[in-house]
């Protein structure tokens, strides 16, 4: 294994067995293939994003890397340790945060929770006390007056900070974080993102973060893997990924849909008429139709799309042509939106 690689996944496959009730007493077994042979690596000291929609396989990947799930096929190594054969060694070099909204004892304060987990992870005495104080300060929980508050009184932002503090307890070289900013208000999400970047770029930690937030991935990730339906579609820097669709432009049409229209049917029509990948982003007042089109065909695609929208009795409010974003890369690679 290359010494510059912190995490290496090779051909990971994971299937889940689910049971579907088909009668009062009968169940049908169904196999869901969550990962279909994904491979990627994460370099030491970088923030690496696993970007994909719900059900893409992000959490399954993270759980395998965190030794919480055994893969059916393939191997994965963290800091050179095999996640199956050397799970205990892997556990010593990782910090994990899977959900921000729970995972602690409700009747203990933030400080007490950290002390308990710290002890469980092998810290003790003065070292534990010092590390807990350091983290409460670093994560801003002291400033928020939350260190000695019961966990049940925490806001989601405080919970997210505490979750990251636990992941950092043993000062591990690798952090594995599943949607660390999910549900946070913008200021909390922003400060957490800044902290993750600082941890990677100033302290040399390797941060693997999953997200379905394109904006977040674009801001914090040094490299991004786009994952969809259990497959890695592309791995590159955000810049590199954008280059893949540099010859394309993003056509954004603001519109109001008639009440009875099926958006999936409309999208399918536009896709087949224009030959371009597209997605519909739902807004409160207005929806946004995004079409990733080759720049030389943008006029033709616009005319075609507008005609179709007119046929479907959609009210068009705005038409914009933009440079591609990470979201456009995703639409281009997967052929659809759906975040």
């Amino acid at each position: 294994m290359n010494t510059n690689i912190a995490i290496e996944a090779i051909g990971l496959v994971k299937r889940y067995m689910t049971y579907e009730r088909i009668g009062l007493f009968r169940r049908r077994r169904r196999v869901v293939e969550a990962l279909k042979g994904i491979s990627f690596n994460v370099r030491k000291g970088e923030v690496f994003g696993l970007l994909g929609p719900n059900g893409a396989g992000k959490t399954t990947t993270v759980k395998i890397l965190a030794t919480l799930l055994l893969p059916d096929q393939g191997t994965a190594r963290v800091m050179g340790y095999d996640v199956v054969e050397e799970a205990n060694e892997v556990r010593k070099v990782i910090g994990v945060s899977l959900t921000v909204e729970k995972g602690f004892f409700w009747k203990l304060t933030g400080r007490e929770n950290l002390k308990y987990f710290g002890m469980l992870y092998g810290l003790d005495g003065q070292a534990l006390e010092r590390r807990v104080n350091e983290l409460l300060k670093m994560l801003g929980l002291d400033d928020l007056g939350a260190s000695d508050k019961l966990y049940e009184e925490y806001s989601l932002g405080m919970k997210a900070r505490l979750s990251l503090a636990r992941a950092l307890l043993t000062d591990p070289p690798v952090l594995i974080l599943d949607e660390p900013t999910l549900g946070l208000d913008p200021p909390s999400a922003r400060s957490l993102r800044e902290l993750l970047v600082r941890l990677a770029h100033e302290q040399g930690k390797t941060v693997l973060v999953t997200t379905h937030n394109m904006f977040e991935a674009e801001i914090i990730c040094d490299r991004v893997a786009i994952i969809n339906e259990g497959l890695i579609l592309a791995v590159d820097t955000v810049k590199g990924l954008k280059k893949k669709v540099a010859e394309d432009v993003s056509l954004e049409i603001g519109l109001i849909l008639p009440a009875k229209i099926s958006s999936s049917e409309l999208l399918e029509k536009i896709r087949s008429a224009t030959g371009c990948p597209c997605t519909l982003l739902h807004g409160e007042e207005m929806h946004k139709l995004k079409i990733v089109a080759p720049s030389e065909e943008v006029d033709e695609v616009t005319a075609l799309a507008l005609r179709l929208l007119h046929d479907y009795k959609c009210k068009v409010r705005r038409v914009d042509v933009k440079e591609p974003s990470l979201e456009d890369v995703f639409i281009k690679l997967t052929g659809r939106g759906g975040f």
């Binding site: 965190a66 990782i94 899977l98 909204e101 995972g103 602690f104 636990r166």
Partner: peptide
Amino acid sequence: WIGALPYVIVAPHRISMTLILS
């Protein structure tokens, strides 16, 4: 139920030992 099980598992001890000894 409280969502703490994964964090007990990632401690470098066997989960069963943690449950019993603690």
